[in-house]
Simulated assay, not measured.
Amino acid sequence: MDVTGQFEAEIARLHAAEVPGASGRLRDLFDFLAARGPDAESASQEEIAREVFGQVEADADDATVRVYVHRLRKKLDDHYAARGDAAGEPRIELPSGIYALRLDAGQAAPPPAVETSRQWPFSPRIAVAAIGLIMVAAVLWGMTMSSARNAIWQPIIDSDRPVLLVLGDYYIYGEIDPVRPEQSRLIRDFRVDSEAELAAMMEAEPDRYGYAEDVGLTYLPVATAYGMQQVIPVLAEAGKDVTVIASSELEPDMLNRYDVVYVGLLSGMGLLEEGVFAGSSLRVGESYDELVDRESGQTWTSDEARTLASPAFYRDYAYVSAFTARTGARVVVIASERETGLRGISPIVAGDLDGELAEVADGEAFEALVQVTGQQGADLDDRVILARTR
């Protein structure tokens, strides 16, 4: 039987077993993906929202789609785990990161005498260790390689202040159902950025936040590690005293004692956001996925959320700025709307500047917007959209 035949046969068996349910939205999602076949490109969130959930004006970053895809993936994984099939049996998978069903036709089990590889389960502790290793490697690299001392970094290198490297993080709280704890979940709510704000929302909106609970968690976007890998060698080569904190830990009086370098997404800037954009010719639009020119009204919006899961090219936008705050702190901002932009801009800012960016960075204060072309998270090309003095 060919791949298509095996795929269709396994889909029919899952239907008969009612793995995706006899009816309902989960079954509709399964049928939509199954009808596309085993070799289909990944559907977009917008397409699924429109075709499966009937959302005519679908959001490119649709939470409903992500929740149902996660549920379907778990249903499939639980089914095969419970069935305990032999290694040679076919199975339908919904791989992480794409919205398409795939057939694993199965292979004969390898001889048990030799163990050739081992897959380690992901855990936050491992993620933290990985970021730590990146930081150590970056520092060692900075001690042995010559980093470019371009105009962005020279004021910080010449300063007597230590450097505060601020990483844009995000607060997460738990929603714990005491009756059905298995349905508890972790939530990122843009209205809640700290334990204190969560307590305030629980008091103000008890119906919505009645099951909310602080669980002591924040997270960093993966692209932040790539930014750190570029920035730390520059600071290490200059012999700067660097303290690394999350943006949620930043306090206003720190700008009286430190120069500040921010690395992260626009949405993770926290207390820095107001000061950075108060003196900017740009402003954040209706969401953190867009920046707007205050004078012309022109808008630059990231396409990453819409097309990240597909092989299509998309545009993300990175924002770079350097200025001296009223406290005397030198502030450098390396940020982006989404993760691709941050990965693309970091090596540019840490390297030899040229063109418009080099010219404007020679001034006391500047800002620049860079368009980064991406594909499935990879940064492929970049272009300076604007470069101005502040």
Rank of each mutant, 00 (worst) to 15 (best):
V136E: 15
V136D: 15
V136F: 06
A137F: 11
A138K: 05
L140K: 13
W141I: 05
T144L: 14
S147H: 00
A148G: 06
A148Q: 11
R149F: 01
N150L: 01
A151G: 05
I152A: 08
W153C: 03
W153V: 00
W153A: 00
Q154M: 03
I156Q: 05
I157K: 01
S159Q: 00
S159C: 05
R161W: 00
P162N: 04
P162W: 06
P162D: 10
V163N: 00
V163W: 03
V163F: 08
L164M: 12
L164T: 04
L165G: 03
V166H: 08
G168I: 02
D169I: 09
D169E: 09
Y170Q: 03
Y170E: 03
Y171E: 10
E175H: 14
E175L: 09
I176D: 02
I176Q: 11
I176C: 10
I176V: 15
I176S: 02
D177H: 10
P178K: 13
P178H: 12
V179E: 14
R180S: 15
R180P: 01
R180I: 15
R180H: 15
E182K: 12
Q183T: 12
R185S: 14
I187Y: 10
I187H: 13
D189K: 00
F190C: 02
S194K: 06
S194E: 09
S194V: 14
A196H: 12
A196P: 06
E197W: 07
L198S: 13
A200G: 02
A200Y: 03
M201A: 13
M202C: 12
E203V: 07
E203M: 09
D207Q: 14
R208N: 14
G210F: 15
G210Q: 08
A212L: 07
E213K: 14
D214P: 10
V215C: 14
G216L: 11
L217S: 10
L217D: 03
L217Y: 12
L217N: 11
Y219P: 04
L220I: 10
P221Q: 05
P221R: 02
V222K: 00
V222H: 03
V222S: 09
A223P: 05
Y226N: 05
Y226C: 04
Q230A: 15
I232L: 15
P233Y: 08
V234T: 01
V234I: 03
A236H: 08
A236V: 05
A236K: 10
A236W: 00
A238W: 04
A238L: 08
A238P: 06
A238Q: 00
G239R: 10
G239P: 04
D241H: 09
D241F: 07
V242Q: 01
V244H: 05
I245M: 08
A246D: 01
A246M: 09
A246L: 08
S248W: 08
P252Y: 02
D253G: 11
D253P: 07
D253W: 13
D253M: 12
L255T: 10
N256P: 06
V260L: 14
V261P: 01
V261M: 05
V263Q: 06
G264D: 05
G264F: 10
L265F: 07
L266K: 01
L266P: 08
S267V: 09
S267G: 14
M269E: 04
M269L: 08
G270V: 07
G270A: 15
L271P: 03
L272H: 12
E273A: 15
E274S: 11
G275C: 03
G275F: 06
G275D: 13
V276W: 03
V276I: 14
V276T: 14
F277P: 01
F277G: 00
